[in-house]
Nucleic acid binder design. Structure first.
Lengths: 243, 243, 243, 243
DNA sequence: AATGAATGAGTTTTCATTCAT
DNA sequence: CATGAATGAAAACTCATTCAT
């Protein structure tokens, strides 16, 4: 089976593992299956990876490396411009816009950002699915989850670790962190994870699904807006909640 | 190993399986482990259950039987009263309240409802975790997911299958269904599934976590309120979104 | 293959392992071979033993349990009688006999003892062979070796741990311990380990081999005798060595 | 991994194999481990050696070539002088010295010989360990053992193959051969094989161990002396044994 | 209701060896 | 000389399941 096909053997192994782990989970996938799918001998998998577990770690770590930097880049790109122009001020508990147009501008950028993030997670939906599965079914990947949840504010690797143009930074409360995680990160990841299944289950096609989900994200952002502020502290928000 | 302890053998098996499946997933749990955890011989497990798979189905079906009826009861209790009193009208695309007090009343009931639902899912967090895990890692439980997502409106078992007091019913758009599922069901389930881990990972204790999550749910509902309406059609909502 | 043969499955496994480990060594023996030899499935071996290594430990520990108690019993039986009759005194560095006949008596008993010990080790030659092999090829069994070598004088499990009739005990010097080990224990064990090979290699039959080896042991004891003393301190002996 | 270090690749392979085979045995050592230890690729090992087995044979044969010639040289140097001077006569069953001083002289030479032999085996203790291990755990090296045991008197390669100055030769009985092997060769080899472990296990340091073992060898020789004879026939010896 | 013994078919992992370059 | 990639065969070990009692 000496392989000199278009793709290199190691890549084929990684792809096969991604496919199978995301479909059936880590435990339910056998090294034999990966070998067969990758058109490679079992032994070669152990030539490149220390163990089956090592293959998994490899996949997951490649995701968690990329995902944060992407997120940080997007956010800063959206916000820094407005700050420099003096139209946005980052207060401890909120983003304050000086004029309605600034809100609009941010809103548009946020919309674009959502689309980009959604595309990113959909592209990586297999590994995200693996990530979800394995963060549930093993004690592992808690560190990766922390990063996502952003509980460690000070952590230089965290989503909001890097200062904005004006030297300030978000000051998320714990409650806001919970909100962000469970009503933004989690839906996003879950949507990606179930994406292929959703097309089958629901009557909606890919395009409609994507559209519906983006709308939902927008609705969500709307809930944080209060006049010309975007609130980042739950307590203030509560007063604002009508019911 | 004759066991005549307080709990009966079959219960011990179910509890052991719940614990292990929720921690490690179905595939990663061996019948041997279940037997050891339940302080029972392997053979006895096969006396009570046809197969390992049968144990799982048993657990999952016990959840999905309960969860819908619970949800439906709560909702009807919250809404039917207002309808009968003529203070709430169920329109095709929205709930319309006749007066501000009705909104308040509904809001209070919704708050209570959230607390009850949250407690319910937390109580059943192990099986929910199993459910999440298995719905991701196998083709199984798609039907159960459908029920939860409510895509099948006409299904008599679905959340909205039962008419309200005035003979009308919700008329969720597909988009709204997506929203409800990914920004309500999914966060709720995920919160429950990760609950025990969250206490460890975050600095927050159980009470604070619960509080933060309930606040988040309220924030979310707020985003659906528009004057005296609660919008159920995304398209309308969009116009309403400030940014 | 449900086995209800004369021998029980576990015994058959132990016997098969003993045979194969002693012939080819632990590493060179596969669990498959043991299974085949024992007429048992591989899985059954893992039903009774945690691992292949566990099978080995089982064999070795069963030997090292027996061997010491046997040795201690023999020695005490030989010596205590003479002590009680006042014909033997245990001095710090030597055994002193009061009359030539006592020396003769001891000598006869030692001869008998040698025969018994030799028979014992020959009977257990397979496990001894395993023991030799594995004490060389792994860090393991050092504790067992210590016991044999008797470096730990005070250890209650050691060969000379138990007092004699007159409340005294041997007081072996380190040097004497080395002598005893390398010129008594080691030859004995090695003889047993190579026994089956010796018959093939040499022209001698079993009986002659046994006889020759016993003679050698006697010659050795002779080297410790000095008048009516049996010296137990090397330093004294040295003076006594003619050349 | 291009290696142009001080040592050549082949030497590094041989050293690594010696180290590992002596520690863990042939079967338990993998070619991979040898390669890692030697800082060489696996493939290079197969460039220099036909197979893993070939590496072993290479090591063992290097020892067994040396060991005999060394032994013979030593012996002849010790004895031939005395024979030529007419102070030692080699009889069929004993060495007879004409005067006490000759015995002393021989004794001194023997002492020196022991020291040399001990140093030699200690230097080669790793290969001796391998030799012991493999002679036990495989049919191999029986021929080499024969050589050592000297069963094959007539073999031109054997220890006593070469005549002494007076044209005579030792005439070891089978019994004496057994004695020599099990109470001289075996202890020597075993001492060397366990040497490194002994330092750890016992409280004795290298120097003390060496000293104690040499003393033991002297004690042993003493047991063969009878007046001005050194007996080479067990039967005669027996009468001489006091007990 | 309960179990100890047993197993076939699988799993993950390792190994000695080869070969094109 | 030297190597990275590759492999078939076999290793150790696990698993869900069965069955006589």
């Amino acid at each position: 089976m000496k392989n000199k096909d278009n793709h290199k053997a190691k890549d084929r192994i990684i792809n096969a593992a991604t496919k199978l782990f995301s479909r059936k989970g880590f435990s339910a996938t056998s090294v034999n299956e990966i070998a067969k799918e990758a058109k490679v001998t079992k032994a070669l998998i152990y030539y490149y990876f220390k163990s089956k577990k090592d293959v998994l770690d490899c996949l997951v770590s490649s995701l968690s490396k990329n995902i944060n930097s992407a997120a940080i880049d997007f956010i800063h790109a959206s916000i820094d411009g407005l700050i420099k122009e003096g139209r946005l001020d980052v207060l401890p508990d909120r983003l304050r816009f000086t004029d309605d147009e600034a809100v609009d501008c941010f809103s548009r950028k946020a919309g674009k950002y959502y689309r980009q993030v959604l595309d990113y997670v959909l592209e990586n939906r297999r590994i995200i699915r693996i990530f979800l599965l394995e963060s549930l079914s093993s004690g592992r990947y808690h560190r990766e989850m922390l990063r996502l949840m952003n509980f460690g504010h000070e952590d230089s690797e965290s989503l909001v670790g890097k200062n904005f143009a004006n030297g300030k930074d978000f000051n998320y409360s714990d409650e806001m962190t919970i909100f962000k995680f469970f009503f933004s990160t989690v839906p996003l990841f879950t949507f990606a994870a179930y994406y292929d299944d959703l097309e089958k289950i629901s009557a909606l096609n890919a395009k409609k699904l994507r559209h519906a989900f983006l709308n939902s994200l927008q609705m969500l952002t709307a809930s944080l807006v209060c006049g010309r502020d975007i609130l980042l502290q739950n307590k203030q928000l509560q007063k604002n909640i009508i019911m």
